[in-house]
Structures are given as C-alpha cells and as structure tokens.
Simulated assay, not measured.
Amino acid sequence: MNRLDRLMNIMLSIQSKKYVTADFLAEKFNLSVRTIYRDLKALSEIGVPIYFEKDRGYTLVQGYFLPPLHFTTEEANALILLQSLANKFTDKTIFKNSESALKKIQTVLKHQDWEKTASFSSKVEVYSPYKKDNDNLSKIQNAITDKLIVSITYSDAKGNTTERKIEPIGIIFYTEQWHVIAWCWLRENYRDFKVDKILSLKVINQHFKKEHTYTIQDYMKIF
C-alpha cells in the first residue's frame, strides 16, 4: 500500500469510529506508532480536522465527513443484490433508505460502470412471502441502535392481544419472518415477538432501564 492510499485509509478508520488510538492504527496497518504520528501530522497539514482527546484517542471534528472515493462494479453489484433482498425481506422505510443509498453510490460511479450495474439490477429477482405494509421493522432497528423502550400492542399465537413495553436487543429472520428479541416488562423476561404480529408500535423517548448482557446469539443457542 502506497502512502497516499494509507493516509486515505487512516482517515476512513478514524471516521468509522468515535475515537481511535495511535496503537490501534499502528496494529491495523502494521506500522510503527512513530509512522502513524507522522501520517496524522501530514493529514492535519493538508486540512483534515483531526482532534486528539487525552485518554481517548483521535477523532474527526464533528460534522466533517469524507465521502467514498470510488466503488468498483463488483462492490456496486453486491449492494444491488442486498438492496433486492431489502425490497422483499424488510419494510418500506428500510427499502426506501437502501434505494437512497444506491442513488448516492451512482453519483460516485463512472458512467460506464453504472450502466453495467443498472443492467445487472434488472436480472435480479427475489421472491418472498414477507409482508412489508408498515415500517415497524425500521422503528425497531432504530430503537435497538438508540436503546429506547418500545410500546407495542401484540397478538399472540392464540389471538390474545396485550399491551407491552419492551427493550429490543436484536432482530432475527427465521421461519420466513422477522422476530424481535426483547426484554418484556410485562413478563419480566426475554421474549420472542413476531414482527408481523405487532398490531401497533411506538418508540418511547425513554432509554432502557435494564443493562442487557443477554444477546440474540444466546437466544439462538436454544435451537
């Protein structure tokens, strides 16, 4: 890797995390810490707003964003394939967001490369019984990310309807449908909720009350 590529990758590494240390960068790029310091100084000299915070590491000044330099045709095709899956297996909001991301990718692709990927997209189709007539999945996704409590009206396998407040820790796709694994305050335990059985959903502006060490990987071990 030449120095220009290395500097660009160092910037992307800093951008992808809240803080990174020189030791972390040195190990990642198999360089000495002294070389990393020189590279960080070079980036600062060309105007990249790198900020150092004691005991935490390096970060980019808030609001600064480095756009991707380019995508290969293969990378764009991979994203088109994922977007096709999003269309069939997620909800309308997630599909809309993935479609928007693809349009942004189009702006950084060469015209001839985008023509190739556009041709490929017409040759991909996914069939699924999953229904996406709401945006519950994307709301759950945001609640997991922000650790916010969710209020739901849920219909169980027997058709009984209950009001629940849950703390979602993850989502799983199995048995041809999405499930959210969450701490249920009504049952005082972790429960598996089928997303398509959620009749109404509202993300409450309250953070989780419980510290969760239980994971969806722990849940899947019972199968």
Rank of each mutant, 00 (worst) to 15 (best):
T162I: 11
T107G: 05
R56V: 07
E27I: 05
F173Q: 00
V203K: 13
Y130P: 00
N9S: 06
K139M: 15
I216S: 09
A76F: 01
A143Q: 10
L40R: 11
L85G: 05
A78M: 14
T107Y: 05
F71Y: 06
R3C: 11
S121Q: 04
L12Q: 00
L82C: 09
W178G: 07
E99Y: 03
D113R: 07
Q112M: 10
K147L: 01
A26L: 06
V33A: 10
K41V: 12
T35L: 12
K104D: 02
L60H: 06
L102R: 10
Q217S: 13
T161V: 15
V203P: 05
T35W: 11
F24R: 05
L82M: 14
I216G: 00
I166K: 08
D156H: 08
Q217E: 15
K18C: 04
F223D: 00
D113N: 01
R6D: 02
R164L: 13
R191E: 12
K194C: 07
S151E: 15
I105H: 09
A78E: 14
T21L: 02
K103C: 00
F89R: 01
L69E: 08
H70S: 12
I166V: 15
I80A: 10
E75M: 09
F65Q: 11
I149F: 05
S44I: 12
D113C: 02
Y58E: 04
V150G: 03
F223G: 07
L81F: 12
K210I: 11
I152C: 06
K147D: 04
Y127H: 04
M8R: 15
L66F: 08
R164F: 07
A26N: 06
L25V: 03
I46H: 10
F193L: 13
K18T: 09
L4V: 15
A182H: 07
D146F: 05
T35I: 13
K210C: 09
Y174R: 10
S100G: 10
N136E: 10
F223L: 15
L40M: 13
Q217L: 14
S119P: 04
K139E: 15
D133G: 02
Y51G: 02
F208I: 02
Y190N: 12
E75V: 07
K132Q: 11
L12T: 02
K41C: 12
I181A: 10
D23S: 13
A143K: 08
C184M: 10
K221V: 08
V195R: 01
E74P: 04
K41N: 15
K116T: 14
I169A: 06
T153Y: 08
I144N: 04
K197C: 00
Q62Y: 03
F52H: 14
H111V: 11
N2P: 02
V108D: 01
L43R: 11
Q83G: 09
K41G: 12
T72L: 01
R34F: 08
G63Y: 07
E53G: 04
L186G: 06
A76Y: 02
S151I: 00
E163L: 09
T145L: 13
D91W: 02
I105L: 07
T117L: 09
L66Q: 05
T107F: 05
D218H: 11
H212I: 11
L31R: 12
L199V: 03
N87G: 01
K165V: 12
K209A: 12
E115Q: 13
I216K: 04
I181R: 08
V180N: 08
L7P: 01
Y51A: 13
F52Y: 14
V126L: 03
E74S: 11
T117F: 06
H179L: 13
S151P: 02
D23Q: 13
N2T: 15
L25W: 09
N77W: 08
